[in-house]
Structures are given as structure tokens and as C-alpha cells.
Computed example of a mutant assay.
Amino acid sequence: MRALSILLGVLALLGLFAGFLPLLGWVNWFAALPPALLGLLLGVLARDRGAMTLNAVIIGLAALRLMLGGGLL
């Protein structure tokens, strides 16, 4: 479960990078938040602090980007 959590975190990080481009903030709803939330859940179940931290940081950055863009931009 630890490896799957980290893999989901890395995939969410790639989605987060795409969501930082102008006018592509909506990508965070589909490419960053769902995998990061699932990765966080798996990290909690595996009791792996590194995986939990990675996914929590990605969730925070994606949420911040969505707030700054009004949820879409």
C-alpha cells in the first residue's frame, strides 16, 4: 500500500504541474485532487508518514491554486 500511495502522489504531482499552467486550473479537479486524496487514504492505512505528507502537500497546493483561480481558471 505504501508504494501505491507514493505512486498516486507522483501521478497527482504531474497533474498538479499541468494545473499550474494558465487557464488549466480546472485540471486540478480531475488530475490532482482525486489521486492525491486516494493516496492520502492509502498512506494513512499503511501508516507511512512520507506518503501522507507528499499527498497532503499536493492537496494543499491544488486547493490553493483552485482558490486563487476561482475554482476554474
Rank of each mutant, 00 (worst) to 15 (best):
T53V: 09
T53C: 10
I6E: 13
A56Y: 01
L41A: 15
A12R: 00
G9F: 02
V44D: 06
V10N: 04
V57H: 05
L41I: 00
L23T: 08
A12K: 01
I59Q: 07
V57T: 13
M67I: 02
G69Y: 03
I59E: 03
L73V: 05
I58A: 04
G60P: 11
P22E: 09
I58R: 00
R2H: 11
D48F: 14
M52G: 05
A18S: 11
V10S: 12
L66W: 02
G39P: 11
A12N: 02
L23S: 02
L14Q: 02
R65M: 10
V44L: 10
T53D: 09
W29D: 12
A62F: 00
L7N: 11
F30A: 10
G69C: 05
A31H: 06
P22A: 07
L7H: 10
W29Q: 06
L45G: 03
F20Y: 09
G50T: 14
L21K: 09
L8R: 10
L72Y: 03
L13M: 05
A62H: 07
V10H: 09
F20M: 14
R47M: 15
R49L: 13
I6Q: 15
I58H: 00
G39W: 12
W29L: 13
V10F: 05
L7F: 12
M1E: 13
A56V: 00
L38R: 08
A31S: 08
M52W: 02
N55D: 01
I6T: 15
P34Y: 08
A56C: 05
F17V: 04
A12G: 13
V27H: 09
N28V: 10
M1C: 13
W26E: 12
L33G: 00
I59Y: 00
N28T: 08
G71P: 14
T53F: 00
D48V: 14
M67W: 11
A3Q: 09
A62I: 02
L14D: 00
L24W: 05
I59P: 01
N55W: 01
F17C: 00
G71V: 08
V27F: 01
L16P: 06
P22F: 14
N55T: 07
L54V: 06
W26L: 15
R65Q: 05
N28G: 06
L40F: 08
V44C: 10
A51K: 15
A31W: 05
L64S: 15
R2V: 01
L4I: 11
L73N: 13
F17H: 01
L72N: 12
R2I: 07
G39V: 11
R47E: 07
